[in-house]
Lab assay of single mutants.
Amino acid sequence: MQIFVKTLTGKTITLEVEPSDTIENVKAKIQDKEGIPPDQQRLIFAGKQLEDGRTLSDYNIQKDSTLHLVLR
């Protein structure tokens, strides 16, 4: 499925993911596309910070959802 990741600069990254993918996995995909190390990434969805060990389906993230990427 496709999800979107919006950065603070207003750029939107499109990712191909599975509901069973972990947040860690998603961060690795963002690193592949953007070169941002996962340890600098914070992903936010519906006002919640997403934890590495959980999956997209744990957070009820569905296709065409938009996550927000904050760098630390």
Rank of each mutant, 00 (worst) to 15 (best):
E16H: 12
E51R: 06
I30V: 04
L50S: 01
T12S: 13
L15P: 00
S57G: 14
I44V: 12
V5P: 00
N60I: 13
I3G: 00
V70D: 06
E51P: 02
A28D: 06
I23H: 02
Q49F: 10
R72T: 15
S20H: 12
D52A: 07
L15D: 00
R54F: 14
R42D: 15
N25I: 13
F4D: 12
M1N: 06
I30A: 02
P19D: 06
D32G: 14
T9W: 03
E51L: 03
K11Q: 03
D52M: 15
L67D: 01
F4H: 05
S20R: 02
K11V: 11
S20P: 15
H68G: 04
P37E: 11
K11Y: 14
V17H: 03
D21K: 11
V26N: 00
F45Y: 14
D58P: 01
L71H: 12
D58W: 09
G53V: 15
K29Q: 12
L71F: 10
T66P: 02
I3T: 01
K33G: 11
K27P: 00
G47Q: 08
L69I: 04
K33L: 04
Q40T: 08
R42E: 09
D32E: 10
E24Y: 15
I23F: 02
E24Q: 13
I36T: 13
K48G: 11
I13R: 02
E18A: 15
I13E: 02
L69T: 01
E16R: 12
I30Q: 00
L8G: 06
Y59S: 06
L43G: 00
K27A: 02
S65P: 01
R72F: 09
R54Q: 03
R72P: 03
Q40P: 02
P19G: 04
V26Y: 00
E16S: 09
I3F: 02
I61T: 02
K11S: 05
N25Q: 15
T7D: 09
Q40D: 07
L71Y: 07
K48L: 12
D52E: 06
V26L: 14
V70I: 06
K33R: 07
K63M: 15
G10I: 03
V26F: 02
I61R: 00
